[in-house]
Design a protein around this nucleic acid. Structure first.
Length: 670
DNA sequence: TGGGGTGATATTTTT
DNA sequence: TATCACCCCA
């Protein structure tokens, strides 16, 4: 086990009050968090169940758990909570749902479900023409993340469009509540509201959070910060780890200022900076420091490394995006062949997803295996969404969104007209669609055959709901899928055999995940708990990872955060690409610079930056200018290749002239 | 119910 | 250019 450096050790041992660890890229922040948790449990005698660590991604939480259990060996780490903010919120809501006015079995709507619901409401309200369709979901999300209630949102708006959006927000919240459902943002928002209104509940949670550790602190938004403050309370047993230079989620509500706010809110805050980098060579770090030096800083820090200077950074000047892809791929091949570098050591990083395409094409042409991260999520597949909707409905008979999704999938001859009438009836009776389906009052408005179909469906669902509750929930799910002949429906609705096979495999995978969840830590989980847990999980299609092997990594800069690779190719270093056009327009260059910084600091041994002079934009060929960030790098550390651009030609001319005038001045002074 | 034609639209993305 | 949602017609 590597020894901690003095600063890291100090951060691990400082438990007397609130602590902010400013951890530069590659400075071993995860090591500090994991070692600190082990220290708290082993040395300070804090009970594992009273330690809570929060991260932003499942992946980070998973890794952290693994590393801690490695450190603690056989010692008791049961009850230690390492989770994402959202899972923590879910646990709080699960325990306290009554106080919040939710019933057991409440559903979680994912981003897609919530967008669907908003679109539906928008349609009902006939507000399409008011131009608030675009960005409505993110507006609502921003409000929620800033702890702005619908009423406050409405009172704050100035124009009619904003008011319409705020009304929709109110409407949306009412529907969620009626569905006994929450969305992702609610998982943070509701606990905050609960703790504001119920001091006893807050005390309960404070008592079980004797120590709180927060990773990637710069990514917290206002509601997450509020939750942190509430849980920490006056005790101030908090370690926050973050790096303002790696804040790249401002567009999602993250507030890097939260780092500075800590100092205000916790006057006793201790600050420790981790500046020794264990990842990159000196030249790479020098360039990174140089670039980020152009940003204003909340806290000054300067990364250094003992790893030696390393090679100069290469800049690839390319004619077109095609040429760029070919240049990068041939460099990778070169590394691979001449230095025996594994393909898996190479990563191609880009600003936006569409840039991956051309690289995929060229890699395929060269028969080079690659791993593209950030594809469609497992849970975005129709078949998975369908079954999840069934599960939600089993657990929560009030989940109208789930009901509407699957009532006619597979076909049960329950069409839009029927549903509209049913919805009218249900809302008059103040009940849910599923519960209304079996009611006698429908006699007045629906023909007998239709009523029978509805009642049959409702009875069928209720039957399986009972089976899921009393018996083996996984078996109930299997039976449900078989009983409605869903696999055949999938085959019928798939374009070809191949997609059908894939979808069936996905279905199997979902069921086996359910099985795995029942075997997990807590044995007897209810169906709804399993469903909610699944909704927060990130099962991506990882055939690539499973088939394993040595593959080039392709990913966005956002996805690369937290990772490292021996050889990094930072591509598309152009104005309007990185910095992205909209960021230029919105005068948001600093965040783009941080993105470039994140990209550079992913590299361990070698880094190449590339740009194209021409690129297809919305179908049309457009001239491109090298990114301003290239000029912000120290030119003596860069090695340009390819044909020199106008810029470099100009530079050489300038340099030549400077040299001449220098000579002249020498002559003149003589 | 499904398929084809049409017009708008075009970041980053986790939970 | 490429995709996607939407609408109309068979």
């Amino acid at each position: 086990m590597p020894a901690l450096n003095p600063r890291q050790a100090e951060a691990v041992r400082y438990i007397d009050g609130p602590l902010l660890v400013l951890a530069g890229a590659g400075s071993g922040k995860t090591r500090v968090i994991t070692r600190k948790i082990a220290y708290l449990i082993e040395t300070c005698g804090v009970a594992a169940r009273q330690v809570t660590a929060v991260t932003f991604t499942n992946k980070a939480a998973r890794e952290m758990k693994q590393r801690i259990s490695g450190l603690l060996k056989n010692r008791d780490s049961r009850g230690l909570s390492v989770s994402t903010f959202h899972t923590l919120g879910l646990n709080i809501i699960r325990r306290e749902h009554r106080e919040l006015g939710y019933k057991p079995g409440f559903s979680i709507l994912d981003a897609q479900d919530s967008a669907d619901l908003l679109r539906e409401l928008l349609r009902k309200e006939r507000m399409e023409d008011e131009g608030i369709t675009a960005g409505l979901q993110s507006q609502v999300s921003r409000w929620k993340n800033a702890l702005v209630s619908p009423a406050r949102a409405l009172s704050r708006t100035e124009d009619e469009t904003g008011a319409a959006a705020a009304r929709l927000y109110a409407h949306y919240q009412r529907h969620l509540k009626a569905y006994n459902a929450v969305d992702f943002d609610d998982l943070i928002l509701l606990p905050v509201q609960l703790f504001r209104e119920h001091p006893q509940a807050l005390e309960r949670w404070q008592n079980r959070t004797r120590y709180l550790l927060v990773d990637e602190y710069q990514d917290t938004n206002a509601s997450q910060y509020e939750l942190v403050k509430q849980l920490v309370g006056v005790r101030g047993a908090l370690t926050a780890v973050g790096d303002d230079d790696q804040s790249v989620y401002a567009w999602r509500g993250a507030r890097p200022e939260n780092l500075a706010l800590l100092q205000k809110d916790f006057p006793r805050l201790k600050l420790i900076k981790l500046e020794q980098n264990y990842r990159s060579t000196g030249r790479i770090l020098k360039c990174a420091n140089h670039l980020i030096g152009n940003n204003p800083h909340l806290f000054e820090k300067r990364l250094w490394s003992k790893l030696g200077p390393g090679d100069p950074l290469r800049v690839l000047d390319c004619r077109s995006e095609e040429h760029e892809a070919q240049s990068v791929v041939s460099e990778i091949l070169h590394h691979h062949v001449t230095q025996g570098a594994p393909l898996g050591d190479c990563a191609i990083l880009y600003r936006s997803n569409h840039q991956a395409r051309i690289f995929e094409k060229v890699l395929r042409e060269h028969k080079i295996p690659y791993f593209l991260s950030g594809g469609t999520s497992f849970f975005a597949h129709t078949e998975i969404k369908d079954i999840m909707a069934y599960l939600r409905l089993l657990a929560n008979p009030e989940d109208d969104a789930a009901f509407l999704r699957i009532v006619n999938v597979p076909r049960r001859e329950i069409g839009p007209t029927t549903l509209e009438k049913l919805a009218g009836y249900a809302s008059r009776r103040n009940t849910s669609l599923l519960l209304a389906s079996g009611e006698l009052g429908l006699e007045q408005i629906l023909p007998q055959r239709t009523r029978e179909r509805l009642a049959e469906f409702a009875a069928w669902i209720e039957d399986f709901a009972r089976r899921g509750e009393s018996g083996d929930p996984v078996k109930a799910v299997r039976d449900l899928i078989r009983d409605m002949d869903y696999p055949n429906w999938l085959r019928e609705t798939s374009a070809n055999d191949k997609t059908a096979e894939r979808r069936l495999a996905n279905l199997d995978e979902l069921v086996s995940w359910l099985g795995a969840l029942t075997k997990g830590e807590a044995q007897d989980k209810s169906l709804s708990e399993m469903v909610n847990q699944l909704t927060l999980m990130d099962i991506l299609e990882r055939q690539d990872e499973e088939t394993g092997g040595d593959r080039v990594h392709l990913m966005t800069l956002h996805a690369a955060k937290g990772l490292e690779f021996p050889h990094v190719f930072l591509v598309g270093m152009e104005e309007e690409v990185l910095p992205h056009r909209t960021s230029i327009e919105e005068d948001n260059i600093e965040e783009e610079r941080r993105l470039a910084y994140v990209g550079i600091t992913r590299a361990q041994r070698s880094l190449a930056l590339s740009y194209a002079n021409q690129r297809k934009r919305y179908g049309e060929m457009a001239e491109c200018e090298p990114s301003r960030f290239l000029q912000e790098l120290p030119s003596q550390e860069l090695q340009w290749s390819g044909k020199p651009t106008n810029r470099t030609r100009e530079e050489t001319r300038e340099r030549g002239q400077a040299h001449l005038s220098h000579l002249r001045s020498l002559l003149g002074s003589d």
